[in-house]
Design a protein around this nucleic acid. Structure first.
Lengths: 341, 341
DNA sequence: CTGAAAGCGCTTACAG
DNA sequence: CTGAAAGCGCTTACAG
């Protein structure tokens, strides 16, 4: 496999030393402009390619960042996490870094084994995307490497995280429903499943509290089992006028269920989602929802991890990235008098 | 950044040489089982992590494979290519390799510049996913590195490729429509846009030929402009009884259009798609389509590129991966007498 | 402005 | 079974 041009080859051709070639190619001081130019020219002609492994071994830096995604999040139709990863790769490029995808298999997650990107020193930091098990969080904590949780967090782990502002997103959505005259509002989601679902629930709850509305158990509808698989949503006996769903796909599923039971949307029930993914626009009517700002999340995550690479003691805590409400047709104003804005 | 344990550290602790440590940790001959065990134990205790950069520099191998995806394919709602990439990453893991994602920006594609993964020697091979421009194909050909096209090909470029068997997929789908009594069948897709669309068209065409049906220009409906953006599909004056669409999303768009024009599916028109992506199941009725076997494609691609890494002269030509027809409710049998299977 | 020497962490070939 | 020596391609002091 050894047919590559090295700095030494360029040096020989020009009758200089490889030190001089290194300086020239890296635009360092100590080489006359004339020689610098000549070296670059010859390097180009000879098809020289930089050997980053040699630099890595010197610097102790791989110039790669690992992006870990648990396998169960990647089989979904809507590949939110893969799109985030893609945006991370684009952002890393600005820093001269690359992204290595590390799909965490269920086996690895259970066996609590370190990922190969870590045990083989392939990355200078790792971004973990999507909820991982409590036990595996401990494993992650034991990794001697900058790390960052993206799109979820764990309050016990002292690991920095970047999350969408789920709390305020759901809070504002619920406020909006209340502005539209709704008083009997359900929340759809398993609050024990992920921190996102829980935070969105709490945002919804805060809105109820602030408006003096009472939360009752019947208003909390489950959407998935403990392993995260969707279940049929059970409609309550006394129907609410509006539903805050923890994500668009669940909102979509709920709408199907409601239509099946003879309800029209938004005439009989209003429904809001979260994420602004494909399910929001495919639903009919299209869903009012909150858009996650993927680019901003990726940008923030990459900046934060690069920070930590240069300064391992840097702590950024939990950073919230604001989502944006997208108003569409799935909410009906049911107040007696029109709402004054 | 230099706080890592090296083989030398382990060697010192045990009073042996680093050569012996290397042999022990790599399970090579020439170390007593006893010592081997002791070395491994101490390595574990000290939290030793292998430095792959050092190995890379020796072997001239990065143990990474680049996966290049043109930017314009990643913004889509349905991230087919990202799912393929993910499956590639999983397959690479079996070989001890990692995948580095390389989003090819439109600028790079126009400037014909080498990707950084290449100029920095970050990868031992590169898999290119999704059609790239003719010009950029030349650039790719000039890269001195094993390379592979995935999900498209170029007949002028002597570059191996792995593609879904688009031709036979569309051929079989069209046969199926004919079996169901259809004689007036349109094809929807811009045949100059991608090789996939073209090959699917040719499979459709072959089926017509074999059944003595005449192809007419009016049966070819355009779905996108030369830059690949979807356009409104113009329905022909004299309506066919069935439509072969180049992909599910286009089939979905067509169905919307047909419904808008007052046609019912499959009562008035039958429609088939290709890909079995989310649009196939979201459409109502769900679409009869061809499922691309992503896992098999990724497996074949990874095997092929690994082949080339160990043997750069290896040529595998164009490998076709069979899709599978998924029969659903978007086709109506319009033959006078029931079809006997 | 230019280069000889040393070293990053590992492995290979060879000697004992 | 064990290890001293050399080398992979580059960069960082340091000397001239």
């Amino acid at each position: 496999m050894k047919s590559n041009i090295t700095m030494k080859d360029i040096a020989n051709k020009l009758g200089v030393s490889s030190v001089t070639v290194s300086k020239a190619l890296n635009d360092k001081e100590g080489v006359s402009d004339n020689l610098k130019l000549k070296i670059k020219k010859v390097a180009g002609e000879m098809g020289y390619r930089f050997n980053s492994a040699a630099k890595s071994i010197k610097d102790g830096l791989s110039y790669n960042i690992g992006v870990m995604i648990p396998q169960r999040f990647t089989g979904l139709n809507d590949s939110f996490y893969l799109r985030v990863y893609q945006e991370i790769a684009v952002q890393l490029d600005h820093y001269g870094y690359f992204g290595i995808l590390n799909i965490l298999s269920s086996d690895e997650e259970e066996e609590l084994s370190f990922p190969r990107v870590y045990s083989e020193n392939k990355v200078d930091g790792i971004i973990i995307l999507g909820q991982i098990s409590k036990k595996y969080i401990e494993t992650v904590q034991n990794m001697d490497l900058p790390k960052l949780f993206l799109d979820f967090y764990d309050e016990h782990a002292m690991i920095d995280s970047i999350v969408t502002d789920n709390f305020y997103g759901a809070y504002e959505l619920t406020n909006y429903l209340i502005q539209n005259g709704h008083r009997d509002i359900a929340y759809v989601g398993n609050v024990h499943s992920t921190s996102s679902i829980q935070d969105r629930f709490l945002g919804y709850y805060k809105s109820l509290l602030e408006h003096g509305l009472k939360f009752e158990e019947r208003l909390l509808l489950n959407d998935r089992d403990e392993r995260g698989y969707y279940i049929d949503i059970e409609l309550p006996d006394r129907m609410p006028t509006a539903f805050v769903c923890n994500c668009d796909q669940v909102a979509y599923n709920l709408c199907e269920r409601l239509r099946g039971a003879g309800y029209r949307i938004p005439d009989d029930c209003s429904v809001v989602g979260f994420d602004n993914d494909i399910y929001a626009t495919l639903n009919s009517p299209q869903l009012t929802t909150v858009e996650v700002d993927i680019e901003q999340m990726a940008r923030t995550a990459v900046k934060s991890i690069m920070d930590k690479v240069s300064n391992p003691n840097r702590r950024n805590g939990r950073v919230l990235v604001h989502g944006k409400i997208i108003y569409r047709q799935s909410v009906r104003n049911i107040s007696d008098s029109p709402v004054v804005l």
